[in-house]
């Protein structure tokens, strides 16, 4: 199927023609249009999940190159975009895995207990200094939401990478908990502890910084 396409790109005239008829039906690929069609979308997709412009650029590039290498395995069952997005997503998860593996991972989990200062150890009450208070504002229009997102991002960046990985994977693609645990090698119990700690910290950080 894709062999056909590769044959076409050998012929400049046909390549041009295919460029015009990229929009699918039979789910073909047109790598000569990839950058124009997907690069900005993939870049934004990656930036939202990995807050690192240089790395995001690399991942977009790697995704296209990996796609080229696997062109012969594109069966047209999904759209080209879905297929490439899956490649990109796997690369993003790889980054999460690297960032949170080994030592970092151990630290992130053992830190959970050490940092447990939101509540009294004996009865589980909020410590008075950590009482959640109302946010100074609510992000109820677009402009405020944008500001809120900036602060939220900054707060997320302060957390251990394993926590961010868990949090992001759960919220970004609404992945099943079991899959996240498997991909990041955390137990189900630790998964929920991390979710809890992440939110406690994010909320506190927002209260303090979104003013």
């Amino acid at each position: 199927m894709t062999g056909l396409h590769l044959a076409q790109t050998d012929n400049p005239a046909m390549q041009k023609e295919e460029g015009k008829t990229t929009t699918e039906k039979r789910n073909t690929t047109a790598p000569n249009q990839w950058v124009e069609q997907y690069a900005d979308y993939f870049y934004a997709y990656t930036i939202a999940r990995i807050n690192d412009e240089e790395l995001a650029r690399d991942l977009v590039q790697e995704t296209f190159l990996a796609g080229l290498e696997r062109l012969d395995r594109f069966e047209g069952k999904s759209t080209e975009r879905t297929w490439l997005t899956a490649i990109l997503r796997n690369k993003i998860v790889d980054v999460y895995r690297q960032r949170s593996s080994g030592l970092n991972n151990d630290n992130a989990i053992s830190n959970i207990d050490e940092q447990d200062d939101f509540f009294n150890a004996d009865d589980g009450h909020w410590k008075e200094t950590h009482y959640p208070k109302e946010f100074a504002r609510t992000p109820d229009d677009q402009l405020l939401a944008k500001e809120f997102h900036i602060v939220l991002r900054r707060c997320m960046n302060k957390l251990p990478s394993l926590w961010i990985a868990v949090f992001t994977m759960k919220h970004m693609d609404e992945l099943a908990t079991e899959n996240i645990c498997k991909e990041l090698k955390v137990t189900a119990a630790n998964f929920w502890v991390i979710v809890h700690r992440t939110k406690l910290n994010l909320r506190a950080c927002l209260q303090k910084n979104w003013t």
Partner: peptide, 21 residues
């Protein structure tokens, strides 16, 4: 606040963020 944060996080991930090109 927790519900609010989750909603906003979802907005971040779903928005196209046209400013990052």
């Amino acid at each position: 606040q927790s519900i609010l944060i989750n909603g906003q996080v979802r907005n971040i991930f779903q928005s196209r963020m046209p400013d990052s090109t």
